[in-house]
């Protein structure tokens, strides 16, 4: 039977956009204190790690494994854009868990919805996630999801392969690369070390337009609370800068003045 891979993909505000708004002092907070006012100006994109999780799924298929890939997202109506992206890249199916809860900060609630959706699909062998959302940088969903599905968990993958009866994953650890094998069902979170995700082909984009994601209702999936944390407020920290500029007529002069200044500040070799 074909291996059924689910790719969990999240829509996020483009982190580069948030970054530049923050740097230029234009990242302001709305009256709820819980979200940014730039929500409509900064584009919403597929979380880059999730695009790489999709890439990992496609590489498993490219390696000759008979598999079916379903893209899965939890979010409001606009979140279906990430499903279109995955379909265009080569997913067969897509499932949209329609959840109006605008804020995706509670990974526990999201994981509960994802777990329920995966259970509803019934035959899932492998769930590929991104290592973390580039919005809240939490990375809690893969772990909670594994726990709820009683599945094996492998985080921060640089390479994912299907074996006879499981997956072989190369993980990025602070000590270097580590190879592990996990039994199925498994949740694997993918990191940027896997490499750049392929762009959708023209053909893929055409195909994707014809496909309609299945819609699951969040209220039906989630009985009970399932939440773990809640955002009270968001804000932009002050970056206090006081930078001593090193001047000089020539690069040579500035180089030696810089090293003098560092020695004087006691941060560079006493000589």
């Amino acid at each position: 039977m074909a291996m059924h891979i689910v790719v969990a993909a999240k829509q996020v505000l483009d982190p580069e956009g948030v970054n530049s708004y923050a740097l230029w002092g234009r990242l302001t907070v709305d009256e709820t204190q819980r979200s940014f006012t730039v929500g409509d100006v900064i584009p919403r994109i597929i979380n880059a790690y999730d695009e790489q999780a999709m890439e990992a799924a496609l590489r498993i298929r490219d390696s000759g494994v008979d598999c079916r890939i379903t893209a899965l997202t939890v979010g409001g109506g606009a979140a279906t854009d990430v499903l279109k992206r995955c379909l265009a890249m080569g997913a067969e199916d897509a499932v949209h868990v329609d959840d109006t809860e605008s804020d995706r900060a509670d990974g526990f609630r999201t994981a509960a919805l994802l777990a329920a959706a995966v259970r509803k699909m019934g035959d899932v062998d492998l769930v590929l996630c991104g290592r973390q959302g580039s919005d809240y940088d939490q990375g809690t969903v893969p772990g909670v999801l594994a726990e709820l599905l009683d599945a094996a968990l492998v985080t921060v993958a640089a390479d994912v392969r299907a074996t006879e009866d499981g997956v072989q994953v190369v993980r990025v650890t602070p000590q270097g690369l580590e190879t592990v094998e996990a039994t199925l069902p498994a949740v694997v979170s993918v990191s940027n070390e896997i490499g750049v995700a392929r762009a959708p082909s023209a053909r893929g984009m055409l195909d994707a337009r014809r496909k309609k994601p299945a819609v699951y209702d969040s209220a039906e999936l989630l009985t009970g609370a399932g939440g773990g944390v809640e955002v009270v407020r968001v804000f932009v920290p002050d970056v206090q800068g006081h930078c001593e500029m090193i001047e000089g007529d020539t690069p040579a002069e500035r180089a030696s003045r810089l090293l003098d200044a560092l020695a004087k500040a006691g941060v560079l070799g006493g000589h």
């Binding site: 948030v18 970054n19 990242l27 940014f36 773990g228 009270v232 968001v234 804000f235």
Partner: peptide, 9 residues
């Protein structure tokens, strides 16, 4: 770039 204050539910 930003901070969020979380409460536990």
């Amino acid at each position: 770039a930003a901070r969020a204050q979380f409460r536990f539910v």
